[in-house]
Design a protein around this nucleic acid. Structure first.
Length: 832
RNA sequence: GCCCGGGUGGUGAAAUUGGUAUACACGCAUGACUUAAAAUCAUGUGCCGCAAGGUGUGCGGGUUCAAGUCCCGCCCCGGGCACCA
């Protein structure tokens, strides 16, 4: 068994020494950029999930190289982030040191599997040489006004002691540690990803990605078209004496003085996608966070039921976002008594409510309620006995009817279609200065700062005179200070804030005293542009400013032709990287709109029996073990064979053994290889197999490609002598899956290494057809016999021969043949 | 609730897109080799039936000479989204 490891090592060294897989920058060949999502080098090392994706890209890289492409197939390390830092806190070992160790281990593991990476392009996000570019891109974002500071309540993980981006919060929990996320007011750096929302949405149509991932990005961006509409708010005087109440227009106190005109009157603005239902509005609802509620609580606005509103607001505040958005719970709300809203289209007075099903952070934090045509509004209206007014003709459905249709009870707009009505009502509102066309997004700006040590320092200083000043290109990289204290403070300040010496600096603008920014970048920063780094990092050269020196290389290699990784990054890395790429496009650094042309997600590998692999269950399979026992090729082959690439699959120890057997059988066949002409039968098999393997690799159907290689091997096994020419072709087809084994067999059967310098076999369509075919004979659609015929036989001939068969006769006798269906070389069906 | 996937032997899975359902592999059974076991090799292996034959791709209908594949109505599993106005 040790043999296998030795042989594999032999070939790995051979490839290294002869630079077989090194990407040549000067090359006339067409390019192919084949990229894996680079790993976080964790202390645990590789698990079997990693090589699944990596084997696929490696197979494709070999395949493309043999087809005459210059392939860029690199690997690197996404090494900033919490695990190394947490380890440092526990042990005092500097994260840098831990990362170095982990990288070494990871790299060794990957090398043992024999992936054909061009290691001269290895990159690491924590190298100053690397992150000075991450910082440089930040400077570009800052220059363009896309990076800004803000203090607002953001998601805060009390366990990680840092702020989080929206994308990192899943169902109210921190994506990495599952701690309940809370809201916290701290100073943050934000990136204006919202400015790119439309382009991120539009351009996703142009890339070849799995549809579910595209859909997730579309949903996350969440564009909706509609209108904003302003509802004036009036106070009803006279408290409980309703009949005597006299409406008075309230002024907006933010407009300072009372008694002004209509312009500074208090208004509640709402966002709606259905302006066509404006006549059906029977009440307004504001979120508990709405400024109207704030004004009521601060007694700026007097109402009749302050206590009730106060209580409701308090309760809403206590609820987590998760509880707030739990669809199953019954909706609640309280009327704000003493206030009325005015429908701008018809002057109708309507009640105003507070309810926590309206979310403060979406749209305007307030809605116009149309119970006849919205489920949520309907629920509230039913519960509290509010008016329900139908304004869209429905066919037969029970209320609420939320579809579109002919407008009714809508004054001059009655009779219009919803879509036409939308336009006309918006037009009318614009004339009245009470509304306008609006587009709303779910996507929020990206909370970009983290209050932790192990990340890229944000390259700006705070100067008393000049404010926030960016560092200059020549001052990069801005490195992290050396320290032994990595603990997060938990106060909203990063541990860097305590490092006085590092903190103190001079302002690049005025030269006066200044302090450095103490927040660091999130882990996503480094992975936003790493694919570019692989292009820049040629021949192990350092990546140096200015950016313009890489223009030609970017032009040559972009976009990434194939990108493979897990689906879990759908709205994180894959969205962030697209955003940065578009910014770099605007800056003129890159010339393609999108970074990754084709994306494939590998399915999860489960443990034996389909149970999730986990340490606690003790069913984690280590790739090292498999390699040691069976060899890297068996591991690779098995991971490609065990199911559809994108499907979830379960590991099976027995299945692994089957792969080993397959390779042994090939060895047996190789003993029969001689310089003899190929039999016509095996010639056909070869052409068929070549066709199948070529097409299957292109379509990511590795499992069936391998099975067709097994079929071919079984065929060769039946032959007395195997033609060397045929066997050599077979090895070439096999090589992308089991590179070491193929190389060894290649040499053993008298060829000159490397097999990867060979051309990919071609097939001839006409040679994939067999001389003899078996034609199915059916009677009334049921198979009764199969007959051997020469390929291309006519209907007459087949019919004649078919009717000779006793098995067929038996079923045809005693009836007339009413109809005969004939499919050439396949089937004949008699209808009796 | 909505949007994607998917449901085929004992198991992982194939099926050229309407044309022999279960390729390939695992497992199992029997036999050979062996003192024995493992490994290996050979043969068999959807189900019912001694056989002829029947039957069979989640369930119920339909179209067709012919349906795993197309149409209609359900059920189940996986993933995503989910009070987004």
């Amino acid at each position: 068994m040790e043999d296998i490891n030795k042989i594999e090592k032999k070939w790995q060294d051979y490839w290294d020494e002869n630079e077989i897989f090194k990407t040549k920058e000067e090359s006339d060949k067409p390019k192919f950029f084949c990229l894996d999502m680079f790993p976080y080098p964790s202390g645990e090392g590789l698990h079997v999930g990693h090589p699944r994706g990596y084997s696929a890209t490696d197979t494709i890289s070999h395949f493309k190289r043999m087809q005459g492409y210059e392939v860029l197939h690199p690997m690197g390390w996404d090494a900033f982030g919490l695990p190394a830092e947490n380890y440092a806190i526990k042990t005092g070992v500097h994260p840098k040191k831990k990362v170095e160790e982990n990288v070494k281990h990871f790299k060794k593991q990957l090398k043992t599997i024999g992936f054909s990476y061009d290691w001269s392009r290895e990159i690491n996000t924590t190298d100053p040489e690397y992150f000075k570019w991450t910082q440089w891109i930040f400077l570009k974002l800052f220059e363009k006004g896309l990076a800004y500071q803000d203090t607002r309540p953001i998601n805060w993980c009390p366990s990680c002691k840092t702020g989080l981006a929206n994308e990192e919060v899943v169902k109210g929990l921190c994506d990495r540690c599952d701690t309940k996320v809370v809201k916290k007011d701290i100073r943050q750096w934000m990136l204006k990803i919202t400015e790119y929302a439309d382009r991120l949405l539009k351009d996703i149509d142009e890339v070849e990605w799995p549809e579910p991932i595209k859909e997730m990005q579309r949903n996350w961006i969440g564009r909706s078209e509609g209108a904003t509409i302003k509802f004036p708010i009036k106070k009803q005087c006279g408290g409980g004496v309703r009949t005597a109440s006299i409406p008075v227009i309230l002024s907006d106190s933010e407009g300072s003085h009372r008694g002004g005109g209509v312009d500074d009157a208090l208004e509640v603005e709402v966002f709606t996608t259905r302006p066509d239902t404006l006549f059906g509005v029977t009440f307004l609802v504001v979120a508990p966070e709405h400024f109207l509620v704030k004004k009521i609580l601060s007694k700026e606005i007097e109402i009749d039921n302050l206590e009730e509103i106060k209580k409701y607001e308090e309760e809403a505040r206590k609820k987590s976002e998760l509880e707030r958005t739990d669809l199953a719970k019954e909706k609640t709300g309280v009327e704000i008594k003493g206030l009325k809203g005015i429908n701008p289209i018809n002057g109708e007075e309507i009640p105003v409510w507070v309810a926590d099903y309206v979310l403060g952070f979406y749209g305007k934090g307030a809605i116009m309620s149309v119970p006849a045509h919205d489920e949520r509004d309907y629920e509230i209206a039913e519960k509290y006995g509010l008016e329900i007014k139908e304004v869209v003709k429905k066919e037969k459905e029970e209320p609420p009817y939320s579809g579109e249709g002919e407008m009714v009870n809508s004054g001059e707009f009655s009779g219009l279609s919803s879509s036409e009505g939308k336009k006309q009502i918006i037009k009318k509102l614009e004339e009245l200065k009470k509304g306008e066309v609006a587009v709303n997004y779910k996507l929020g700006d990206w909370v970009f700062s983290r209050q932790r040590y192990w990340g890229e320092p944000i390259p700006v200083v705070h100067c008393e005179k000049c404010g926030v000043v960016a560092l200059e290109e020549k001052d990069l990289p801005l490195e992290l200070p050396e320290t032994e204290k990595y603990e997060p403070t938990g106060t909203g300040e990063s541990p860097l804030a305590d490092m006085k010496e590092w903190l103190k600096t001079t302002c690049p603008k005025c030269g006066g005293e200044a302090e450095r920014e103490t927040n660091t970048m999130p882990q996503w920063a480094g992975s936003c542009w790493y694919y570019l780094a692989f292009i820049m990092k040629q021949e192990s050269e350092k990546m140096e400013f200015p950016a313009s020196r890489y223009e030609d290389a970017f032009q040559r290699w972009l976009p990434v032709d194939l990108y493979v990784g897990g689906a879990e990054h759908a709205v994180l890395h894959l969205l962030y990287a697209r955003f940065w790429h578009k910014v770099l496009y605007d800056v003129g650094v890159v010339k393609t709109k999108e970074p990754f042309y084709k994306l494939k997600n590998q399915g999860l590998i489960m443990g034996e029996g389909g149970i999730k692999m986990s340490k606690s269950k003790g069913n984690v399979v280590s790739p090292d073990e498999v390699i040691k026992k069976q060899g890297a090729d068996v591991l690779r082959l098995y991971e490609m064979f065990l199911g559809g690439f994108e499907d979830r699959v379960a590991w099976s120890e027995d299945g692994v053994n089957g792969m080993k057997r397959f390779l042994e059988k090939i060895k047996e066949v190789s003993k029969k290889v001689e310089d003899v002409p190929a039999s016509s039968k095996i010639e056909t098999v070869l052409h068929k197999t070549t066709k199948k393997v070529t097409e299957d690799i292109e379509n990511f159907k590795f499992n069936t490609a391998i099975s067709s290689l097994m079929v071919m091997n079984n065929e060769m096994k039946k032959e007395e002598k195997v033609s060397k020419k045929v066997f050599s072709c077979f090895l070439k087809l096999l090589a992308p899956f089991t590179p070491h084994f193929a190389e060894e067999m290649w040499e053993k059967t008298g060829n000159t290494p490397s097999i990867f310098n060979e051309e990919w076999p071609k097939y001839l369509e006409e040679k994939t057809k067999e001389a003899e075919v078996s034609v199915v004979v059916q009677v009334n659609g049921k198979v009764r016999d199969t007959i051997k015929m020469e390929t291309g036989e006519t209907e007459e001939e087949v019919k004649k021969k078919a009717l000779e068969s006793s098995k067929v006769k038996k079923w045809v006798e005693g009836g007339d043949i009413k109809k005969t269906i004939f499919v050439k070389d396949k089937l004949i069906n008699f209808v009796v």
